[in-house]
Design a protein around this nucleic acid. Structure first.
Ligand SMILES: [Mn+2]
Ligand SMILES: [Mn+2]
Ligand SMILES: [Zn+2]
Ligand SMILES: [Zn+2]
Lengths: 142, 142
DNA sequence: TCTTCCTTGAAAGTTACTTTCAATATAGTT
DNA sequence: AACTATATTGAAAGTAACTTTCAAGGAAGA
C-alpha cells in the first residue's frame, strides 16, 4: 500500500515539475505508515527520528502537498490545530471531549438525507463535515 | 423578544454577581436585534454607531458572556473567524463557498440517525456540527 | 558538467483571538 | 450622599498555529 502511495506521490511530482527529495520521501513515507489523525508537530517528531535536520515548515509544506494530490485530508476538530489523515473512504467523526479519542463513522442513510436536504435548497454539495462531540464509551463513567 | 432576552441576561448577571453596564446593554441589545451570523468586528462596527468608545475586547467579552448564559451560539465555518448567532432552535448549516451565504437547515431524520450511530458506538452525544459546503442556488451558474 | 528552477530551514510575518493591567464604574452599605 | 469592595473597561501586550519570505543548497534535464 505504502509503496503505491509513494508512487502516486512521485507521479504527481513529476507531472507538476516538482522534485523528489530526501525530506519528502521521509515525511511522506512516515505519514503513509501512520494510521491515525496526526498533527504537524507530532509528525515532525516522528520524522526527526529518521532525519533530525528536517524542520517544521517542510513537514507543513509536504502535508499540504499530499492534500493537494489527494493523498491526505486535513481535519479541524475545534481545538485549534489541524490534524491530517491518510485519504481513504469518506467518513465522518465522533470526538470524545474528555480523552480526545476520535472514532470514525459512516452512514449512507445520513449521506442520502443530506443530499436530499441540499437538493431542496438547490444547493450543490462540494464537501461536508459532520462531527459528533461527546463522551466515548471509556469516558462515560466519570 | 429582545426585551425578554435582555431580562434573561440581566438575571444571569445578577445571579453571578456581575454588573450591568452601558456597554453590555448596547452590545447585547444590538446583538439581539441581529438576525444573521455576525463576527466580532462587524458587531463592533454596529455598536460603535451607538457608543463610539466601546472597544473590540468588550464586544468579544460580551459575546462570550452571552454564549455562557446560553443566549448566543458561536460558529466556525472554516474561514478562521468566529461568527455568533442568537440562540434558538437547533439547526445545522450549508455554506456557499462562492458568496459566503449561510443557509440553515434542520432534519429530524438525520438527527435521529445520528443518535443511532452514536448509540452503536456507545458514544454519548454532547453536541454536534453538520456543515455542508458547496454552491448556493445563485452561485451555480458561474 | 552546466544551468535552471525547485526546495529547504530559519526567521519574520499574519490572523484572530486572549490575557494583562491600571483606570474607572457599579452597587450594596452606611 | 459618601464609602467601599469588587467588577468592568480599553489599550496594549501576549499567544497559538500557521504562512510567507529569503538566501543557501539541491535536483535533474541538457
Ligand atoms: Mn478520519
Ligand atoms: Mn445558524
Ligand atoms: Zn474518551
Ligand atoms: Zn452563493
Amino acid at each position: 500500500m505504502a509503496l503505491n502511495l509513494m508512487e502516486t506521490l512521485k507521479g504527481y511530482l513529476k507531472e507538476k515539475g516538482l522534485k523528489q527529495t530526501r525530506q519528502r520521501e521521509v515525511i511522506a513515507s512516515t505519514f503513509f505508515k501512520t494510521d491515525k489523525h496526526i498533527g504537524i508537530e507530532e509528525l515532525l517528531e516522528k520524522v526527526k527520528n529518521i532525519e533530525p535536520s528536517i524542520g517544521y515548515v517542510t513537514v507543513y509544506r509536504t502535508l499540504l502537498l499530499l492534500k493537494e494530490c489527494g493523498l491526505a485530508h486535513q481535519r479541524n476538530f475545534g481545538d485549534g490545530q489541524s490534524l491530517f489523515e491518510n485519504a481513504g473512504e469518506h467518513h465522518d467523526h465522533m470526538i470524545c471531549i474528555k480523552c480526545g479519542k476520535i472514532v470514525e463513522f459512516e452512514d449512507d442513510r445520513i449521506e442520502a438525507l443530506q443530499e436530499e436536504v441540499a437538493k431542496n435548497y438547490h444547493f450543490k454539495i462540494v464537501s461536508h463535515r459532520h462531527e459528533i462531540y461527546g463522551a466515548c464509551s471509556f469516558c462515560q463513567t466519570e
